[in-house]
Amino acid sequence: MSDLSTLTPYVSVSELPLQGMITLRADLSQKTVATAVKAITGLAMPAPRAILEKGAYGIAWMSHDEVMILCPYAECAAHVATLDKKLAKLHHLALDMSDARAVFEITAPTAGALRDCLAKLMPTDFHPDSLGVGELRRSRVAQAAAAVWLTDPKTAQLFAFRSVKQYVHDLLRVSGAKGGEVGYF
C-alpha cells in the first residue's frame, strides 16, 4: 500500500496521550520490591507475562528481573524517587521511560476482529486460550519491537518505541482496513 488515504478502517487505532511508565529492574522475588511496587500501584507482583491494572495504575511483567509500572505521567519522577529510596539497600534500577514509547489503543467491532487485526502483523498466537485478557506479549509488529495486551476482549493496547510510532500506526491502519477482515478468530 503506498497510499494509506484510500483505506477505510474497520478497526480504529489511536495514539494515547503520554502514559507514565517506570522500568524497574531488580530481584522480583524480594519482598521489599513487592512492597515498594504495591505502595505505588496498589497491585501485587504480576506472574510471568501478566499485566495487572487498577485505576490509573498498572504493573506488567517484562522479564524475570524487570517490571513496568504504569502510572499518571506527571507522577513518574516522584515514584522513581520513592523507589530509589525504598530500594536503596537493594541492587535495582528504576527509570522513567515514559517518553521512550508510544501507546496505541486498538478498538475493534468484535473480539475476533481485534485478534485478526493483530495476527496479521505479529507472530504471536492470538487464540484466546493462548493469550487472554490481562496478558502482555512482547514480540514484534511486522519489523518493529512491540508489546501488546488486551484490556478487554475488543480493545488492545500496543506499546512501541517512539521513533517508529508513525510506522506502527500506519501498519495498524493497513491491517485494520476494510476488506481485510479475515474472520479467523
Binding site: P48, R49, S63, H64, P123, D125, R137, R138, S139, R140
Partner: peptide, 12 residues
C-alpha cells in the same frame, strides 16, 4: 526458559 513463550525464529 524465562518467559515460557514458544518463540518464532523471527523473534530470536
Amino acid at each position: 526458559p524465562y518467559c515460557g513463550v514458544s518463540a518464532d525464529e523471527t523473534e530470536l
